[in-house]
Amino acid sequence: MTYDVIIIGSGPAGLTASIYTTRADLKTLVIAGGKWGGQLMLTTLVENFPGFPEGIQGPELMMNMRKQAEKFGAEFVDEDFVEADFSKKPFRVKASDKTYEAKSVIIATGADTRWLGAPGEAEKIGRGVSSCAPCDAAFFRDKNVIVVGGGDSAMEEALVLTKFAKNVTIMHRSDALKASEIMQKRAKDNPKINFFYNAVIEQVNGDQKVESIRVKVNPSDKSLLSKTAEEIEKITPAIFSPKFVSKDKDSITLDLKVDGVFVAIGHMPNTKVFKDIELDEHGFIKVHDHYLTNKDGVFVAGDVHDSHYKQAITAAGYGCAAALEVQHWLENQE
């Protein structure tokens, strides 16, 4: 059997597209991914998606979108896309170990957490390293945690953590936050949140779980660089039981005791799996006319190409546009 369209990804972009394609009577398969639902599954209240004046829980919004798509007949496989041959039609698209055929494809694989890449980090995901405060915050009751990042999502993660943790420290590589005024203010007004600027995590230490981090600090106050190890340990907040490691002419390296590291430094588009689809210099899918890729019959929607707006409503909008274009394109094929 050949599907009219296969949609790869099940965030707001993919699910919106599937609602439109099924309503246009196109036989639709959504390859939803092992972690279906996308980024909004990792958050709590979404306050800016129109139609929900009281806000709506991210996962609830996604479950509703999926129900809506299923109601109109979209089929789902909750597996990851592995590879496709876009050179011949119908396209052959492989998910897990099954291959499906389709006349057209919409790529809507969105973006995933950008991790720090520091040694010790990957092994401790789920053991003190996290990218989802709403999921994991409760395990850090009365603990001392770090949130890495300076944007809205870092502020958001920190605020969620204050409900459980004893101390929440937002660590940022510079001293200029990118977060919006309103989110900065919320974080700064919270008595449990402190800021640690000009610091980068170099290593995550711990045996079974996170016990400490090694950070490299480039202080804006250069006079700190002439202080002794003891003095540096003394002026570093005592909650970290700081241990001086080393210093050079413009930085100080310290070990800080922490129980958790929440990473919120942005997202990476999920494009590695697409072999002959053209990408831009930052790894996003290169988009032509808002919805086209370099391959005829392969369309794109959402955060996988959009490095600029990165919102649920824009992703949904791109999904809608791609679906309407697919419909139009299929009509012209016949």
Binding site: G33, G34, K35, W36, M41, D78, E79, D80, I125, G126
Partner: peptide, 8 residues
């Protein structure tokens, strides 16, 4: 750890 598909 974390949500995965039934097959995985």
């Amino acid at each position: 750890i974390g949500a995965q598909s039934k097959d995985s």
